[in-house]
Design a protein around this nucleic acid. Structure first.
Length: 213
DNA sequence: GTCCTGATGTGCT
DNA sequence: GCACATCAGGACA
């Protein structure tokens, strides 16, 4: 696998979210390489998406979502957790993929130490957990995955089955969209109310869009 | 295993 | 003010 280029991210957000599953995310924060395989991700697309941070239009916080694909959008929430997103689409279209869960691979001991846990499945099985394990904070907002020490390697090497469901933690705002994607039966997928609709592995792009939109 | 709650800072109304 | 793309820990069963 190789570092993914910008044109991987500058595409339809749902395609990017699906194609990121099985890829490896790497972080070299503090000169320590940590990372693992992405097993769960969600799409947030445009001002019309009521759950997307760009819904109110451009603000100081979300402005980066309107810009170049392949940059990190990190924000702080619930008073203590950082959420890590990757900007997608072309400039002018505010959209991103939230990385929701990772299966630990590189330097598991260091990540377990950062998380203060001995259970491998508690290291990065949620969006707040994985940023802590990888050492990613709002300081990394704007980092370029195509030219910094945080990046994603792909394409995926394993054959995987991909499931789609409604998104997590966004109340009743826009929940009919099945824009959460995760690897079937992976133990590091986050605990969440799963409205599992369908395995999307076999679907081609057009069929996939018809189904998810 | 399930359900419920408290912790905690920031952005936007 | 308040909602928030969350998590850990406790009370149950």
């Amino acid at each position: 696998m190789k570092r993914l280029p910008r044109n991987f991210y500058a595409r339809n957000t749902i395609d990017v979210a699906i194609d990121l599953l099985g890829c490896h995310i790497i972080s070299n924060v503090g000169d320590i390489k940590t990372g693992g395989m992405i097993v769960e991700a969600e799409a947030y697309i445009g001002e019309d998406d009521k759950a997307c941070h760009a819904h109110p239009g451009p603000t100081a916080r979300n402005l980066i979502m309107y810009g170049k694909a392949g940059l990190l959008y990190v924000y702080f929430t619930y008073g203590m957790y950082n959420m890590m997103n990757i900007i997608t689409e072309r400039p002018g279209i505010p959209a991103a993929v939230l990385i929701r869960a990772v299966e630990p691979i590189y330097n598991i001991d260091e990540m377990a130490h950062r998380r203060n846990t001995a259970n491998p499945h508690e290291i990065s099985s949620g969006p707040g957990k994985l940023t802590q394990a990888l050492g990613i904070t709002v300081e990394h907002k704007g980092a370029d995955l195509c030219g910094s020490d945080i990046y994603v390697k792909g394409p995926r090497e394993k054959k995987i089955e991909i499931m789609a469901s409604s998104r997590v933690g966004i109340g009743e705002r826009w929940n009919e969209k099945l824009w959460r994607f995760f690897i079937k039966d992976n133990p590091d997928v986050s605990k969440a109310p799963k409205i599992i609709r369908q395995n999307v592995f076999e679907l081609d792009k057009a069929r996939r869009m018809e189904y998810t939109l």
